[in-house]
Nucleic acid binder design. Sequence first.
DNA 1: TAGATTGTTAATCGATTAACAATC
DNA 2: TAGATTGTTAATCGATTAACAATC
Lengths: 218, 218
Amino acid sequence: MNQAPTIPKPSLERLFLYYRILEACREGRKEVISSEELGRRAGVDAAQVRKDLTYISQCGRPGIGYQVGELLVALEAVLGLKRQTHAALVGVGRLGTAIHNYPGFTHFGLRITALFDIDPARVGQRVGEHEIYHIDRLVEIVSASTIQLGIITVPAHAAQAVANGLIAAGVRGLWNFAPVTLRVPPGVIVRNEDLAVGLATLSWHLARSAKPLVSGGK
Amino acid sequence: MNQAPTIPKPSLERLFLYYRILEACREGRKEVISSEELGRRAGVDAAQVRKDLTYISQCGRPGIGYQVGELLVALEAVLGLKRQTHAALVGVGRLGTAIHNYPGFTHFGLRITALFDIDPARVGQRVGEHEIYHIDRLVEIVSASTIQLGIITVPAHAAQAVANGLIAAGVRGLWNFAPVTLRVPPGVIVRNEDLAVGLATLSWHLARSAKPLVSGGK
DNA sequence: TAGATTGTTAATCGATTAACAATC
DNA sequence: TAGATTGTTAATCGATTAACAATC
């Protein structure tokens, strides 16, 4: 009972944004921040900020604002920012390599501990401290590990098979960069990072705002 | 009057998804599809599919379904899929290179026609058919071009300055991969592709579903 | 005709915004 | 005390889901 209240998805994403801003505040020796300023820096309404922060705790003080340090600690606890997530990355092409090396991820607890590819030229190579294995060994190796998350950076046509393998190996979350909708059994969490759709919506809005309509587009 | 009805953001993204599925149908010589099947393949409710498609036209037939060919043409027109978007990419690191080479983008009309970096070792190199210019020449070169979109793949601390330069050069849309909230004047469209936040939310859900609560998590 | 499936309206759900009493 | 700013409630807005008459 009194299970932690489930945080709405958009609020959750904003909380991570606030966290980063607060870290910058700490670095700048800023000790207190108001919902108004936090909102301005995050591009979010002040009322929205206060609402979001109620999912964490009540650590603001009327008339004063929020203690940066306190809020950081509370966010770390609720967002689980000290927890490590072990991941396998499948598809060590350019995008896969970029993700493997992206500095921002380790900061949020991601540890990529296994790499797979189908290209014999890549198999056996080392990337950082890890070796690239052949995709045939995916289930074997992941099953024997503590890996909880699969990162899919293979071409679209191979993505479903890779997802199946990862799930068979016991992975319960997928971060999918391939431009396809994956079918997964209930209980498996999928996040699609469909860059092409992201681009397409952006350029749609762009083209749309360009047409000088009645009152100037927007 | 009777201006094209503005499409809700989530619907717009799904329309691009449908488009890809319909292309696959065309390839498979499938001529008719129901909202139910399209929904199943896209991971979307059938009622939702029908609703989304009303933003395009009424090209379904009761009792039959949708003509794949007709729907593709209608989507191409409304989504502007034949239109080219010229873009400048700033920050030719691993992520920048991955994006530059990502095959799915040209398919949605993206043409990256200028590349910039601050690293003297990279400036002057060629990537595909384009040369990498020094970031100092950003405003000069972009101003003189037909570039409408800026892709920001620089480190967080440099992103706002890059955004300012792109906007000064007349760009009206930004695709921002840097983990910061950009401040832009009204009329400039920004899409943040914040991968670290994406990952963080995914691993939050993962950790949360792992805890065996009252009735099995979810 | 009977069965299938659309387009649309109404009901539901969820998130954002506004307002303000409580409090530092 | 006066001014600032929170936490929370209520009002608004927007998107999803359900239901069903129309129609192939």
